[in-house]
């Protein structure tokens, strides 16, 4: 039993710091600080520990502490030609996992939730808890990593994760064309990592072996006059989550939609959607069981 306990002194020390009389919240780089509502007053802010603990390129896994920035992590991984599905937008690994927003190129990289193989968090009572396992395939017990990823830290404070890594493809390119049906574009190529559409222009991101990219580019050339561009368009500030089928009927003055994914960036916020009461009941029970006194990240909710 003692051999299973977390021995990393850095994590143990952090866990000790969380045991206070006040509510706590973990602060990353505040790139998504407002998601889930404003933080309540009188909350003690903590910074999660940092550092890449263990990186095994041949296992395609990396163990990293939550306070590490995604940029730092990806720099280490790039030395071995790898990356993760976490979005690079200036934030920390812990923040990215707690918020659970997917990368713009989620079709190619996979989702954040599927990248978290093992999670370590500090529970409301200060205990260090490990969920999941450090290998790429695991169904041993209940799936705590899934529950914690995207939970906004209200069930536990994330201190360390083991993430799945992926090889960086040999080649990639962004293409752009106007006046083409984005759905047809999505269907014409095998596995684009992103298809974006602003109501007029369509952008496609292709990744893979160079000859495959050339072949896909020529397929797209038959649909419309695609030309290579530097990157994706600038994204409006408000993120909407809709079904892929809702993209084609979407309207706003300015928007960019991810075709086949359903995420839309628009110039206006998405109205709140009603929650399934049966689902809400489970979520409430979870919150009450994991944080009975409501001291973890109060004010935020999912």
């Amino acid at each position: 039993m003692s051999t299973l306990a977390v021995t990393d002194e850095v994590l143990v020390e952090f866990a000790r710091q969380t045991v206070t009389n006040s509510p706590i919240a973990v602060e990353g780089n505040r790139t998504r600080w407002d998601v889930g509502g404003p933080l309540a007053n009188g909350v003690q802010l903590l910074k999660a520990p940092t550092g890449v603990v263990e990186y095994q390129p041949a296992e395609m896994t990396v163990q990293v502490r939550a306070g590490t920035t995604v940029a730092e992590l990806h720099k280490v991984l790039a030395e071995h030609g790898q990356r993760t599905s976490l979005p690079e937008r200036g934030g920390t690994v812990g923040g990215a996992v707690a918020v659970g927003e997917n990368h713009l190129e989620v079709l190619g990289r996979g989702s954040v939730r599927n990248a978290v193989l093992q999670v370590r968090y500090v529970a409301a009572d200060g205990q260090l808890v490990t969920g999941g396992g450090p290998v790429v395939k695991n169904v041993s017990g209940f799936n705590l990593p899934k529950l914690i990823a995207g939970s906004l830290g209200v069930l536990g404070s994330i201190v360390e994760v083991v993430l799945r890594t992926n090889p960086i493809p040999a080649a990639s390119r962004w293409l752009q064309a106007t006046g083409v049906d984005p759905g047809a574009v999505r269907n014409a190529v095998l596995a684009p990592s992103a298809v974006l559409w602003d109501g007029d222009t369509t952008w496609v991101h292709l990744e893979g072996h160079l000859p495959d990219l050339d072949a896909e580019t020529s397929v797209l050339g038959d649909l419309a006059g695609f030309e290579e561009v530097q990157g994706p368009p600038a994204l409006p500030p408000h993120r909407w989550l809709v079904r892929p089928q809702d993209v084609s009927g979407f309207s706003a003055d300015r928007f960019v939609a991810s075709v086949g994914v359903g995420t839309i960036w628009a110039d206006k916020p998405q109205p709140a959607r009603p929650q399934d009461p049966a689902v809400a009941a489970v979520a409430q029970r979870a919150k009450a069981l994991f944080d009975p006194t409501g001291r973890l990240n109060p004010g935020r909710s999912r």
Binding site: S111, F142, Q245
Partner: peptide, 21 residues
């Protein structure tokens, strides 16, 4: 209860992910 949804990141906790397995 309908867990998850067709959106890329359905609202709320990932109860679908907890249910699978």
């Amino acid at each position: 209860a309908m867990l998850g949804g067709l959106e890329d990141e359905p609202d709320g906790l990932d109860l679908r992910g907890a249910f699978v397995g």
